[in-house]
Design a protein around this nucleic acid. Structure first.
Length: 478
RNA sequence: GGCCCGAUGGCGGAGUGGUGACGCAGCGGACUGCAAAUCCGUGCACCCGAGUUCGAUUCUCGGUCGGGCCUCCA
C-alpha cells in the first residue's frame, strides 16, 4: 500500500514520495493566539494530526517532522493587550496554553515543532533581505513589498491568473504598490504596537513572510507537505510560495499542498467576526474530546462540514458501539482462564478489515471508509465473542484497538468512556443500588427492581442486565 | 464581476460504467420478568435535461440549486 494525497497545486491525487524517507517534513498553518479558538480552527488540527499519525506509521515516529506554527504578532493580539494593559506575550501565552490543551483533548499529538513569530524574527528579517537582494522585493514608504511580477507563476496555486484578479479586484490598492497584487513583507509599527529593528527600519513583519521564515527555520526548505484550511490558499499560501521560490534558496517550496474544507455552522459560516462561534473550549465541557474528533473526521477532509449538534450526537453513538464491543470482549476475556487462551490463529476477515482501514487512510485520508473498516472489525469481534472463540476475540480485539488508536481513537478504557462523568461518590452510590437491585431481582421482586432502576435513572444512570451481571453507564454527559 | 467546489435514502456520509459501502435514527422479530444492550430481518437514494454507451448515480455538455475564495478567518 502506498500513500496518495491530493495536491491543490496540481489538482489531483498522486503517490506521496518524500525527498528523504528518513526525514519527512510537514508544515501546517496554526492559529493566531488572541482568544479561545473556535471549533473550525480545530478541523485542520485534527486532520493533519491524523496525517501525522499515518506518516509516522509509514516512515517511523522519528522520521516525521511536523511543524505547526503559532502567530503571536498580530493586530488582534495587540488590541487585546492594549485593552488589558499587558504585554502581548501575556495574551499569547495564555491562549496558546488553552489552545494546546484543547488540541490535546481532541487527541492531537504534540507537533514536533511549534515555532512562534516572536522567536523567528531574525530569520524573517534575513529572508526579506534575501528577497530584496534577489530583486523580488522593494522598499516603499517605510514598507517592504513583495514584487509579484518577479514570480511568473504567481496565481498558479489558487488558479487565479493575475490579470483576472486585478480586473475583479474590489479592494483599494495602496498607492505605493508597484502592482496591485504586491503584498507587504515588512511594515512600520503604529504607536503602541510592538516594534522590531531591521535593516529596513523599525517595524513588524507581514503575515505571509512569517510562515515562510518559520518553515525554513524549523524544517528547512523545501518541505514535503504544506497544509492548512482552504481559505488560506489565496492569498496566504500563494504568497508563501512566491516568496519561497524567489528568495534564491532553491526552486522548490512544498511538494504537496493540502487544504481542508471549511467547517460551517448551520447555514452560516463560522467566523469569529460573526456571533455564532462555538469554542472548542466550551464544547469540550459538554462532549468527550474523542466524540468531537470523530465528528470532525466524519466527512472527507476536503469536503465542507456542517457543524450541528446532531453530528456530535451521532459521533458519540458511533463510538458507543465501538466501546461497547470492546467492553463486552474484555469481560468475556476476563472469564476465560489464562491457561485456556491460545495465541491467535489467522483471522483473515479481521485482518482484511484492518487492512481496509489502513488502505482507506492511505487513500488521501478517506476517513469515512476507514470508519467503515473499524465497524467491520467491531463486527468480527462481536461475532468472536458470541462464538466464544477466544483466539478470535484476542486477535480482532487487538486489531480494532490498533486501527482505532492509529486514528487517535479508543485510547480510553470502556469504563471511562461510559462512566467517565461519574465521581467516586456517585459510583459508590450506583454500585450500592445495583447490588440492592440484584437482590430484588434474585427474589423476583420486579416492582422493587424497577423502582431501583428508576432511582438510578434519576441519577442519570442506565443499567444493563447481562448474563454475567449488570453494567451501567452515564446516560447523558452533563 | 472573476475563480473554484459540491448536489447520494429520515439524518450524516463513502464509492462505483453493470451485484444499492458504512454509521445514526426508524420498523418487524428473537432474547429479556420488563427494559437496555446484542442478534436476525427490513429501506423502490444517487438534483433536472440532453449526449456517449449494450448499459450511467458514476463520463461529457447545458441548466437549476447550494457553498467557498477574491479582505492578515483554519
Amino acid at each position: 500500500m502506498t500513500l496518495s494525497l491530493y495536491d491543490t497545486l496540481t489538482r489531483g491525487k498522486r503517490a506521496f514520495a518524500p525527498r528523504d524517507p528518513k526525514r519527512v517534513t510537514m508544515y501546517v498553518c496554526g492559529p493566531t493566539v488572541y482568544n479561545y479558538a473556535h471549533i473550525g480552527n480545530f478541523r485542520p488540527v485534527v486532520v493533519f494530526d491524523l496525517l501525522f499519525r499515518v506518516l509516522r506509521d509509514l516512515y517511523g515516529n522519528e522520521a516525521v517532522l511536523y511543524a505547526a506554527n503559532v502567530t503571536d504578532v498580530d493586530d488582534k493580539i495587540n488590541r487585546k493587550a492594549t485593552e488589558e494593559g499587558v504585554p502581548i506575550g501575556v495574551i499569547s501565552d495564555r491562549y496558546l496554553a488553552a489552545y494546546n490543551a484543547d488540541a490535546a483533548a481532541l487527541g492531537a499529538l504534540q507537533p514536533t515543532f511549534q515555532p512562534r513569530v516572536t522567536e523567528t524574527m531574525d530569520a524573517i528579517i534575513a529572508f526579506i533581505g534575501d528577497l530584496v537582494t534577489e530583486g523580488a522585493a522593494y522598499a516603499a514608504e517605510g514598507h517592504v513589498l513583495f514584487d509579484t511580477q518577479a514570480f511568473p507563476d504567481y496565481g498558479k496555486l489558487s488558479g487565479r491568473p493575475m490579470d483576472e484578479m486585478i480586473a475583479g479586484a474590489r479592494v483599494d490598492v495602496a498607492p505605493y504598490k508597484r502592482h496591485p497584487a504586491d503584498f507587504v513583507l515588512w511594515k512600520p509599527s503604529k504607536a503602541d504596537e510592538p516594534v522590531w529593528e531591521s535593516a529596513f527600519g523599525p517595524g513588524r513583519p507581514g503575515w505571509h513572510i512569517e510562515c515562510t521564515a518559520m518553515i525554513e527555520q524549523a524544517l528547512g526548505l523545501p518541505i514535503d507537505i504544506h497544509g492548512g484550511g482552504i481559505d488560506l490558499v489565496f492569498p496566504h499560501h500563494e504568497n508563501e510560495l512566491a516568496q519561497g521560490v524567489c528568495a534564491g534558496h532553491g526552486h522548490e517550496y512544498a511538494d504537496v499542498w493540502m487544504h481542508n474544507g471549511f467547517l460551517n455552522m448551520g447555514d452560516e459560516k463560522m467566523s469569529k467576526s460573526l456571533g455564532n462561534v462555538a469554542l472548542a473550549h466550551d464544547l469540550l465541557k459538554q462532549y468527550p474530546g474523542e466524540a468531537i474528533r470523530w465528528a470532525l473526521l466524519a466527512g472527507h477532509y476536503r469536503q465542507p462540514l456542517e457543524w450541528t449538534g446532531d453530528l456530535i450526537e451521532q459521533a458519540k453513538s458511533a463510538l458507543d458501539r465501538l466501546y461497547r464491543v470492546l467492553d463486552d470482549s474484555a469481560r468475556f476475556l476476563d472469564g476465560v482462564p489464562t491457561g485456556a487462551r491460545a495465541s491467535g490463529g489467522e483471522h483473515t476477515g479481521a485482518t482484511q478489515a484492518f487492512d481496509a482501514v489502513l488502505g482507506a487512510l492511505q487513500d488521501d485520508l478517506n476517513t469515512p471508509t476507514a470508519f467503515a473498516g473499524l465497524f467491520q472489525l467491531a463486527d468480527h469481534l462481536r461475532a468472536a465473542v458470541m462464538g466464544k472463540d477466544v483466539a478470535g476475540v484476542e486477535r480482532s480485539r487487538a486489531l480494532l484497538l490498533e486501527a482505532g488508536q492509529l486514528m487517535g481513537f479508543l485510547h480510553a478504557d470502556a469504563g471511562t468512556w461510559f462512566q467517565g462523568g461519574a465521581d467516586d461518590d456517585l459510583k459508590a452510590k450506583v454500585e450500592a443500588l445495583i447490588a440492592a437491585r440484584l437482590a430484588a431481582r434474585t427474589a423476583r421482586d420486579w416492582p422493587e427492581a424497577d423502582r431501583i432502576r428508576g432511582e438510578l435513572s434519576a441519577l442519570n444512570v442506565e443499567v444493563m442486565d447481562g448474563p454475567t451481571g449488570a453494567t451501567w453507564r452515564i446516560k447523558e454527559q452533563a
